[in-house]
Write a protein that binds this DNA or RNA. Structure first.
Length: 554
RNA sequence: UGGGGGAUAGUCUAAGGGCAGGACAGAUGACUUUGACUCAUCCAGUCUAGGUUCGAAUCCUAGUCCCCCAGCCA
């Protein structure tokens, strides 16, 4: 039994424990086998954490293997992004980087072996005909007229498929299993098809490419994988996985174990949908901060530690599930609360003039960087006669439970002084455009020597000694918890991005570079976007702080 | 309606004959120079119906509902 960490038990660990206890395996080897046809998303993170995490816990190894058997859809760009994302998440495959395409020669030999055993044949039915012959879910299929060719003829035909003699679609290699099997996967599945396309790694060497079912089990076996963990939709393919290995590969065989893929509320994990969002310009790119891709989450400000923690805490099971986005956000906040330095930023500024504060005076005040640190350090922040506070922190006519600034009321400015609102200045339309106040010089640092209390502490920045910034606020991409790919248009959230261009941030942020993460006090966690430059700071809101006031206010 | 898989609080997940436990969400309170964090308390569950048993979420029988499979995709 594994007791080295707090990971909750799950059925996969139970299987591994049994296999180790029975002596079936001395150690474990897992693998993460992405097809390089898209960017990795949070669902892949679950699989990555599972496979690499299991290998770590059991002192085994985990391979990164690109399942690149379909040159039509695959691309070098994806290979690079996948490697970057896996590393970013915090995992390392060491020397164990593999490509299914590296096995094409061996795979071809296994196919020949199958033919020699009389268990595979070259079929000249068209794709449509094969579908017809396959039968339906309730009706058995019927044998292909090419099913009983001689071994010699099959060998010859397969060799000629390989040499490029035949057109795409004219011939395929099929396993000879059982056209009447209740499991349609077993009705003489296609093993090889002709595709006269260059492969991104093997170039023009091949014009026939092996199918997933043939490739995957043998790749696992060739790499001595012990536990081949995949998602539930491959459960029907497991008999084929085992059948192929039984015919051509010596024991022990890798064992395929299926688990339920991750579904997250208010987003979607299908590669097809993500590709569509990018292609139709609904989002900016694969790494748009609203995307559930790892590159999108990274740009949004998510941390690898938070994602790993999340993947561990959601557990692993076989039942369909829909995980609450709030849980991901909880894991994120937990990490960021401990690690993100605090700063002050005013998103929607409202000017406050402190009438009894000397004009042209600026003083440096000390502010704590992260009160969660055991020994917090401080920074200097400039304070002056004119400051900005958040528009929503002032109300001329406040309701009962509003603790913030209002006419005649005293509040604390974080790390600065108590101020009392003395007057309100409005424009012609009646909007509050400025607040006048007085400060109490005896409350420097934020506490009153006479012990008097205030209900609220506001964040603020100096009006003169602060920096302009653009702030991008994000919301979920969809308005429904379980969006369906067919109703994408109606279910898109038109307000998934809100850009604030008048924000002000502490001048300490002048040196911030893309990827830097901060807590904007009382508001949330923000990170510097890659669009940000020295003269034009851009921040993404990673996640807002929990806000009970907003909730009771609703 | 063939085959495969699944069902435990609103959500995710433990317990595999012996006290249904944890986390998220929600509620209340305490604390607070972030209406944050933290802490405390509370709310809330074994798909249904039978059976076996001293005892069933767990074993048996029969149902119900949900997911997957008919690519020369993975």
């Amino acid at each position: 039994m594994d007791t080295s960490r707090n990971t909750p038990s799950n059925f996969i660990r139970n299987i591994i424990d049994e296999d180790l206890a029975s002596g079936k395996h001395k150690g474990i080897v897992t693998r993460f086998p992405p097809e390089p046809n898209g960017y990795l998303h949070i669902g892949h993170a679950k699989s990555i954490c599972l496979n690499f995490g299991l290998a770590e816990d059991y002192q085994g190894t985990c391979h990164l293997r690109f399942d690149d058997t379909n040159p039509e859809k695959e691309d070098e760009e994806y290979i690079n992004s996948i490697m970057e994302d896996v590393h970013w998440l915090g995992f390392d495959w060491g020397d164990h980087l593999y490509f299914a395409s590296d096995y094409f020669d061996k795979l071809y030999e296994f196919a020949v072996e199958l033919i020699k055993q009389g268990k595979a044949y070259v079929c000249q039915l068209s794709a449509d005909e094969i579908r017809e012959y396959r039968g339906t879910l309730t009706k058995p299929g019927k044998d292909s007229p090419y099913r009983d060719r001689s071994i010699e003829e099959n060998l010859d035909l397969f060799e000629r498929m390989r040499s490029g003699e035949f057109e795409e679609g004219s011939h395929v290699l099929r396993a000879k299993i059982d056209m009447a099997s209740p499991n349609v996967v077993m009705r003489d599945p296609t093993l090889y098809r002709i595709r006269k396309i260059a492969h991104h790694r093997t170039g023009d060497k091949w014009c026939i490419y092996p199918m997933y079912d043939f490739t995957h089990c043998l790749s696992d076996a060739l790499e001595n994988i012990t536990h081949s963990i995949c998602t539930m939709e491959f459960e029907n393919n497991r008999p084929l996985y085992e059948w192929i290995l039984d015919q051509v590969y010596p024991e022990p065989h890798p064992r395929q174990i299926e688990f339920a893929r991750l579904n997250l509320g208010y987003t979607m994990m299908s590669k097809r949908m993500l590709l569509q969002l990018v292609n139709e310009g609904i989002v900016e790119s694969w790494d748009d901060p609203r995307m559930p891709t790892l590159s999108g989450l990274r740009r949004r400000g998510y941390t690898p530690a938070a994602i790993r923690d999340f993947c561990e805490r959601i557990g692993v099971a076989k039942a369909n599930s829909l995980v609450d986005m709030a849980f991901l956000e909880h894991c994120l906040r937990e990490d960021l609360n401990a690690n993100a330095p605090r700063t002050m930023a005013v998103l929607r500024p409202l000017k406050v003039v402190i009438e009894n504060y000397p004009e042209d005076q600026i003083e440096e005040l000390d502010a704590v960087n992260n009160p969660q640190d055991p020994e917090p350090d401080t920074r200097k922040i400039p304070f002056g006669r004119e400051i900005y506070i958040e528009q929503e922190d002032f109300m001329e006519d406040p309701p009962k439970k509003f603790f913030r600034l209002a006419p005649g009321r005293e509040v604390r400015l974080r790390s600065a002084y108590f101020i009392t609102c003395t007057d309100v200045i409005k424009d012609e339309a009646g909007n509050v455009i400025e607040v006048r106040a007085t400060y109490d010089p005896n409350t420097k640092g934020g506490s009153a020597p006479d012990g008097r209390k205030v209900r609220a502490t506001l964040h603020w920045v100096s009006a003169t000694n602060s920096l302009p910034a653009e702030v991008r606020l994000y919301d979920s991409l969809f308005t429904v918890e379980e969006p369906s790919i067919d109703a994408l248009a109606e279910q898109l959230n038109p307000n998934s991005l809100e850009v604030l261009t008048n924000a002000r941030v502490e001048e300490n942020l002048a040196q911030a570079v893309p990827g830097d993460k901060f807590q904007f006090e009382r508001q949330g966690y923000f990170c510097v976007d890659k669009d940000s430059t020295k003269g034009n700071l851009v921040f993404n809101r990673t996640v807002a702080l929990r806000d009970t006031w907003a909730r009771t206010n609703k």
